[in-house]
Design a binder for these strands. Sequence first.
DNA 1: CGATCGCGAGAACCATATTCTCCGATGAGG
DNA 2: CCTCATCGGAGAATATGGTTCTCGCGATCG
Lengths: 234, 234
Amino acid sequence: MASWREQAVARTVDPVRARAEKRVQGFLDAALELLAGESGKDFTVQEVVKQSGQSLRSFYQNFSGKHELLLALLEESVFKTAARLREAIATEPDALSRLRCFTLEYHRLCRPPTRPSSPRSVEILGMAEFAQQLLTDDPKEAARAFAPIFALLEEILDEAAADGAVRADLDCRAVAGAMLQAIMFNSFALVLSGTPVRTRGGDAEALWDLLAHGLTAEGRPVSDGNALLRNRDG
Amino acid sequence: MASWREQAVARTVDPVRARAEKRVQGFLDAALELLAGESGKDFTVQEVVKQSGQSLRSFYQNFSGKHELLLALLEESVFKTAARLREAIATEPDALSRLRCFTLEYHRLCRPPTRPSSPRSVEILGMAEFAQQLLTDDPKEAARAFAPIFALLEEILDEAAADGAVRADLDCRAVAGAMLQAIMFNSFALVLSGTPVRTRGGDAEALWDLLAHGLTAEGRPVSDGNALLRNRDG
DNA sequence: CGATCGCGAGAACCATATTCTCCGATGAGG
DNA sequence: CCTCATCGGAGAATATGGTTCTCGCGATCG
């Protein structure tokens, strides 16, 4: 085989690729800094370029456009988040507890920081708008981007179903989708109900309660951990 | 009282206002046509102007900007939708049936038409993106815009709670918010689960099943009407 | 009749994404 | 060391879409 040719090519190509990836990472980091900054989302390509100390041309050489940058950020964010969630649920004893833990923790990660100075809780935040756009404009890409978290949740659901912790007749795939969207966009629910931005607390538990009593076989006890639901006038 | 002065003023102002409202309606109708057209959302202000046969200046005289046009469209759409839902649930015998009917019907209205040639099912469709933006950028306005539908759902929930058809410890306001967002953005759930665009059918019932078993007291029978849930590999 | 106002036509302006053009630096080959 | 090609930096140019401004005509009102 003529692998010597490949080798020769590789010798020139590899360093180039390495530099390219460093550049890409530079843009990604710059974008993250801007997301973390007070300007929040709505950063412009020019800002990313300036922040990264690189050039506009470099940007469009490494990314086909802003869209691709955002997609890369989203995928990175989802990947890290999935890893973090895996850690978080690792210590839970049974499938139902893991399910609850997943719900509460992911809900927390999808929430804007209570203190604006919170330590870079997640980078997803500014991505929310883009994520929504992707979900409507490019379902295929969106599904791929969220696959890590989705797979994790589906795993847990399958376990729970196998354990008999949740109803056996559930379509785990469909339910995982419903749960993910319910958790990610729970803030919409709060807004729709006119809940002022404070009075935040217990909403994760309320969501879990709603989901759990929909997931749990009728007579079965539920690992609530608390009963924070209160009546409207209470 | 100096109502004669108001009268005098009114005599000049009223026709002006009337013409203004006709103009506004013209822009609204034009926008709806564009939404219905194949170009779908993403219409530009210029297109609306051209379609309406009016002038750009008129537009910015009647609307403070594109944002306000979209807001008006959304409010109109929500209002009509709420009315339609009220009709739809009117014939249902009990609160729980009304709840189920509301869920299925609103889900249907929030769904892109299965046949692209469906008779202008709802105008909300193209508004989805704007609605999301409003929900994140201007919670107060968003809550106001969706108030008609929200109020309707809360009514039904209160009735259901009074009837003992759903758990008594539910915070109806919070649950209404969660239900609305779950229904409106159920398409996100399908996308996240990687469901291809076909295979659509039964997802409204699946959602209702999930919600109902979370809303219904444990041992209580549920007005399912069907049991379309199937296992993933089924 | 004349002044005022509404509004059509469209140019002008601004912000952003995207592309293009020029040019210097760097590194390989002679 | 010299030469040349490629990489990539700086930033001008272009495209699009929202928003504002200017002009002028015609209707309406006093």
